[in-house]
Design a protein around this nucleic acid. Structure first.
Lengths: 333, 333
DNA sequence: CTGTTAGCGCGTTCAA
DNA sequence: TTGAACGCGCTAACAG
């Protein structure tokens, strides 16, 4: 690997001049400029980003923490963010936290040790307190899908409460009264918010919120199956099952079918997130769209604006509204 | 951000000593060691990985190029690789090439400019020649899902030809004779290999390879629909459709159902890859498992062994065999 | 066992 | 417009 010094020798100029033509910020005569350029590609010179970063205290890279590297939710988040930042010459360094506190902090340590110019975090296990401190430590931090008190202007979230409301309201609008709900793990913010929305919709409609109609799942498919089993055995007259995500909805559908029920004639099912496979399910899943794309986009725009002074054409928004995606798994009573 | 110098001052030792306790390679007395440790967390010291890399010429990071950051194929690849490397304290820097030559080379340039210790590439657009040159340029390179002549011992691939063979053989074993094939885009290596396997299976069974039974798709769902339309209109007696990936199989199933066909009674469908959603399809898709996991795992193991001298317990393998995943979309004639 | 010193490759003054 | 010199934060000889 050729260094800047070798280039300067080959071009017969000083090392500083080479640096100048690379960064194009100071004036260099066209002649020497060309000499340097020639020397560069004669040597196949590639600037050492490590050294550049050390000297300039700028890495042009943004650290991104996600929970997993797979799954369509994170796939979309990563893709969106990378696309926008790359468009502006910024690079994304991705790490996974696997929803475990020490792995999340470790991942964040890694990102800060690489001196990322900013961080975008989808952190689930780490405490609010930790995030607040991190926010004050100097690195600009954007938080996705989580609202942290005191740093609302750095958080980009979906209105999960309203999403939960929309799901259950759709069921009610279709005439259903016996509404089962399979929630996510309630230590997660989005899970409790979705549940709150569900309860609000029930209240609005004057429907009792019976404890036997609630099952706490863990967002995985299998708990959808369990949930159906539990709720259906306790409530033979169940007519619709609202699930806090699509995976559990899929599990519930499978279990319902195995129990001999036809969807949506005997039992309606509603999901949440609108992940890719929800339209491959049979019947196609009626669900709530999770605005992951918007959250990622805005987090990226916020960083471009606040860290690199690249103004975004759109105003910065922090809360995004989910929408009902009507397909075939919800029918009238 | 505290520097190593500030730590050394606070601990009343030299800067070299601090470096020693950080890296733990030289012997330091327990007393000074503790002093340094105390000073470190009193100051909240975080080593600057950038500076470490510059000084040591080691980044402990591996560059990974994938085509996209979303999709279950790449999700699995990224997850697998990250998991293994992180287990050994190595970090992965992920970039996307979007199957465009200049974006792939740009991404690789980025990774080399960050002085990654090694690269793992899922490069589709770049030429063999480019990869060969890159392989000789000094950075250790592992290539995934592509066999490059002359660097076979750095390539980790699936035996796509045999996978293609297995798919069509399964159809034949079920008594089918009129076998439609929807291939991937034939400029891609894996697509032609899968097609070759298909043809071999036909030959083995003494079945004519009729051109009207072949449709070249593009691996996207929509081309599965087109493919079904074309093949079915040319061959009313078509009894099975072998597709070069699951997306196209899904498209074909949708189109077939819209044409009033029942799967698998009227038409059997076979996919390839065994992506996540294939088991959410209705009926569940019979398909060929693509050993992405093994490829990623081995590429990572190869790098650990060759770059970091961390021997892997398993021997290094370069070619992985796909397997038939029997589900519900393939029936007897 | 510990401290001194010279780089790693580059950006950025300050003079010329 | 150009060059010399210093420093970014750290590792790695080399002495002691």
């Amino acid at each position: 690997m050729a260094t800047i010094y070798e280039v300067s020798e080959a071009a017969g100029v000083s090392l500083a001049t080479v640096s100048r033509v690379m960064n194009g910020n100071a004036r260099v005569s066209e002649r020497t400029r060309q000499k340097v350029l020639d020397a560069m590609d004669a040597l196949g010179y590639r600037p050492n980003a490590i050294a550049q970063s050390l000297a300039s205290n700028r890495t042009n890279s943004i650290g991104l923490l996600v929970s997993e590297l797979h799954g369509s939710y994170f796939g979309e988040l990563m893709s969106t963010i990378e696309l926008i930042l790359k468009k502006h010459g910024k690079h994304v360094i991705i790490t996974a936290g696997h929803v475990e506190e020490h792995r999340e902090t470790e991942a964040i340590d890694f990102l800060t040790s690489r001196r990322c110019d900013a961080l975008i975090l989808h952190a689930e296990a780490v405490s609010d307190d930790y995030l607040t401190k991190l926010g004050k430590s100097g690195v600009p931090v954007a938080v996705v899908n989580r609202k942290v008190e005191g740093m609302e202007d750095q958080c980009f979230v979906a209105d999960n409460e309203n999403g939960g409301y929309l799901a259950t309201k759709a069921a009610i609008d279709n005439g259903h009264k016996k509404i089962g709900y399979i929630s996510g793990p309630l230590f997660k913010q989005d899970a409790t918010e979705r549940l709150n929305g569900h309860v609000r919709a029930l209240n609005d409609a004057g429907i009792d919120n019976e404890p036997t109609l609630l099952f706490e799942g863990d967002y995985h498919e299998s708990s959808g199956q369990e949930g159906f089993g539990k709720l259906f055995s306790d409530n033979a007259d169940l007519s619709v099952l609202v699930c806090a995500n699509d995976e559990m909805a899929s599990g519930a559908m499978t279990a319902a079918r195995e129990a001999g029920l036809n969807i949506p004639d005997d039992l309606s099912v509603i999901g949440f997130d609108n992940v890719l496979f929800s339209r491959y399910l049979h019947p196609k899943l009626t669900t709530i769209n999770n605005p992951v794309h918007s959250m990622g986009e805005m987090a990226a725009a916020w960083i471009l604006e606040n860290v690199y002074d690249i103004k975004s054409p759109e105003p910065i928004v922090h809360v995004f509204e989910p929408e009902l995606v009507e397909r075939d798994s919800l029918g009238p009573l």
